[in-house]
């Protein structure tokens, strides 16, 4: 069950992992996520979905904490994950908006772009994609970029070694100044989503952000993922994970994201030292 069917490097830190999970793929819609558990002692980790191929679910994962490093090192094609559950969360209700921008600067955001781009194109939107990487050698292989599904595709790098020099927010500002963008969908680094919300504060367009949170069950049972949204408490797992970026209390999200920083390091150090 939940056999690994493919594992490939995206760059030095990020990798693509594909597992068999036909029960998840049947009803999955863009915007929904999965929860994976590596082994019996594993934690429940929410993951954005990059690809759905038949009964296989593909994810982009960053080698960051113990689980993601262990998954990269110890799980090979043919190994099995302990659990894959989903699809979870609310699918995005996508419409024909006109011109839309997809923006991302980290694994989860890059992953969600693929599904969103295809669906938005199907609905007749003019889709512009911006994918931000630190530097040229971190840019994903072409087949894992949203490029093939969109009308216009931009790579940006922070050091300017490839594509536009700067962050997706910088390029987005320029686009917004000269194009009539009707909707923005952004995912990735939380602190940058806060900046995005600020940058688009007065904008007459919809701005959606992927609110990545720490979850346990992922079905609305524990409240670990709670987000202050439009003044009330929402659960990212049940009511999200996509929200109107400008109604999210980002300071709250950022603070709660740091809850386990100390202990997370203990787990990784212990794993690396074994």
């Amino acid at each position: 069950m939940f056999r690994v069917t493919m594992k490939e490097d995206l760059n030095e830190q990020d990798y693509y992992l594909e597992v068999e999970a036909p029960h998840v793929s049947r009803h999955w819609r863009p915007g929904q996520f999965v929860i994976i558990v590596t082994h019996e002692r594993g934690e429940r980790v929410p993951m954005s979905v990059a690809t759905i191929n038949g009964g296989r679910v593909g994810m982009f994962i960053k080698k960051l904490g113990k689980t993601s490093v262990e998954l990269y090192r110890d799980f090979k094609v043919g190994s099995s994950l302990y659990a894959v559950a989903g699809p979870l969360g609310r699918p995005l209700k996508l419409e024909s908006y006109g011109t839309v921008v997809l923006a991302s600067d980290a694994v989860c955001g890059h992953a969600e772009q693929l599904g969103l781009a295809q669906e938005l194109a199907k609905l007749g939107n003019k889709v512009i994609s911006i994918q931000t990487f630190k530097t040229e050698k971190e840019v994903y292989p072409e087949k894992y970029l949203a490029k093939k599904y969109v009308d216009e595709h931009f790579i940006t790098t922070l050091d300017g070694t490839a594509g536009y020099k700067g962050h997706y927010i910088d390029l987005l500002r320029e686009l917004l100044a000269r194009r009539e963008v009707k909707a923005v969908f952004a995912g990735g680094v939380l602190a940058n989503l806060k900046k995005l919300a600020e940058a688009t504060a007065g904008l007459n367009a919809r701005v959606y952000a992927l609110v990545r949170t720490i979850m346990v069950d992922g079905t609305g049972m524990c409240g670990s993922c709670r987000v202050r949204y439009n003044g009330v408490i929402a659960y990212a797992c049940r009511d999200g994970p996509w929200f109107d970026a400008r109604l999210v209390d980002w300071d709250d999200v950022l603070r709660r994201d740091a809850r386990f920083k100390k202990v997370e390091k203990i787990a990784l150090d212990k794993y690396l030292a074994r």
Binding site: R44, I233, V263
Partner: peptide, 30 residues
């Protein structure tokens, strides 16, 4: 109510009972 280390009982108990957080880091959930 959103402050860190304010748990719902469900989160607190699930982390321990289901996910065995008391055995961290032998078990992964903190």
């Amino acid at each position: 109510v959103d402050l860190n280390n304010v748990y719902t009982a469900n989160e607190f108990l699930t982390r321990v009972n289901l996910m065995r957080a008391h055995l961290f880091p032998e078990w992964d959930t903190p």
